[in-house]
Amino acid sequence: MTPRDASDANDNANDDAKENAKENAKDSRWSDLDRPPLNTAALRRALVREDGLWRDVEVVQRTGSTNSDLVALATEEKANEGTVLVAEEQDAGRGRLDRQWTAPARSGLFFSVLLKPAGVPVERWGWLPLLTGVAVATGLSRAAGVDTALKWPNDLLVTVGGEERKAGGILAERAGTDGVVVGIGINVTLREDELPVPGAGSLALAGAVSTDRDTVLRAVLRSLEQWYERWRAAEGDPARSGLQETYAAGCATLGRVVRAELPGGRSITGEAVAVDGDGRLVIATEEGVQEPVGAGDVVHLRPA
């Protein structure tokens, strides 16, 4: 080997070492001291009880999508109701309409839960994303001191500098014949320069009194357990469980002029006047017609 060959070899080795160091730093649990890892053991001690809903809490460092992972486990009957799967980082997180959800490692809460609402008619399972929205908003208010509004059907809104911004979302998917996996994503400590889109927000940007992810996750899961058990005890009846009234009270979409982009390319514009017993958004058009919308993308056109 010539001196030049030896020099080139050393340079390549140094480059490889630098790349390895970068990867190791990225994987390190302590690579960002402002964003400590979740404490799995403490979460299990706080949430898993013999008489409770949550049966297991697992935290993984990185995955594509907690929803995809948990749906697969449930479909293969390898997960029980009450399983909670949390990822410190997702690189293929999904929202409604297959929109991507990405964020820096440990900057948010990205988790999915498996629910099997036995005794609740399947036609009422559509309330689960709305129920989850109410539970998350309640948990965030208690643990982070952030007033969270709900955009129908499943966006979590916070106020940043007087502007309404999306700080989280919910995605529910069927899992097997008797289960539903509900995925939740919440931006916790994202800074302005880290936001995926200009209209996004985070708990930190909204002035949260606490951004401790362990505390926030515990509060959200406890709230979800309470609302789920209440709804299930009422056999999924949204009125009897109080869910329909509570959702309407916290829904920022009601009372606003909205445009609903419907499947098939059709759209309707009008005032959002109610959420009906099936969880659909009722829109009153200028023609005097009240049209219920069960699926679609809703755009807020102006404040209430």
Rank of each mutant, 00 (worst) to 15 (best):
G207Q: 04
N20C: 04
S267H: 11
R213T: 07
V220I: 15
A137D: 06
D5K: 08
A137G: 08
G145I: 07
L190K: 06
D8S: 13
N14R: 14
Q244N: 09
T159I: 06
A6V: 03
G270K: 07
A72D: 09
K26W: 10
G176E: 07
N187W: 03
A274V: 02
L301W: 15
A144R: 02
A167Y: 02
T269A: 14
W152D: 05
K166D: 05
K18Y: 11
E123P: 00
G179H: 12
W54K: 02
A274Q: 06
N39W: 01
V120G: 06
D8C: 12
W54T: 04
D212F: 02
R230V: 03
S65C: 12
T40N: 08
L150D: 06
G64Y: 09
E164T: 10
E89A: 11
A6N: 03
D16E: 13
T75Y: 08
E291T: 11
L254G: 12
T102I: 08
A304D: 14
R174E: 15
V216F: 13
L128F: 06
V182M: 00
R191A: 09
V282H: 01
S112V: 08
N154M: 14
V71T: 13
V257F: 02
D98F: 01
F111E: 02
D16Y: 10
R259W: 07
L38P: 13
L85K: 06
S28R: 14
G199C: 12
L130W: 09
R29V: 06
A234R: 08
N67I: 13
L131P: 13
S210E: 10
G236T: 05
G255F: 10
R218W: 01
A167T: 08
R174C: 15
L130V: 09
A200W: 03
A46T: 11
T285L: 11
G145P: 04
R96A: 07
L73G: 01
R218G: 04
W54Q: 04
G236N: 13
S68D: 15
D278N: 11
S210C: 08
V146C: 04
A103P: 00
W231S: 03
A13F: 12
V71H: 12
G201Q: 04
G169W: 01
N67D: 11
V299P: 13
L262F: 00
A234S: 14
G133D: 06
E77V: 07
P263F: 01
A239F: 07
G162E: 02
V197W: 11
E229H: 10
S202E: 10
L73V: 05
G242N: 05
A42Q: 00
A172Q: 07
D147F: 04
K22F: 07
L301F: 15
T269Y: 13
G265H: 05
V84I: 15
A87D: 07
P36A: 11
A149W: 02
P117C: 06
L73K: 13
R256N: 14
N24F: 10
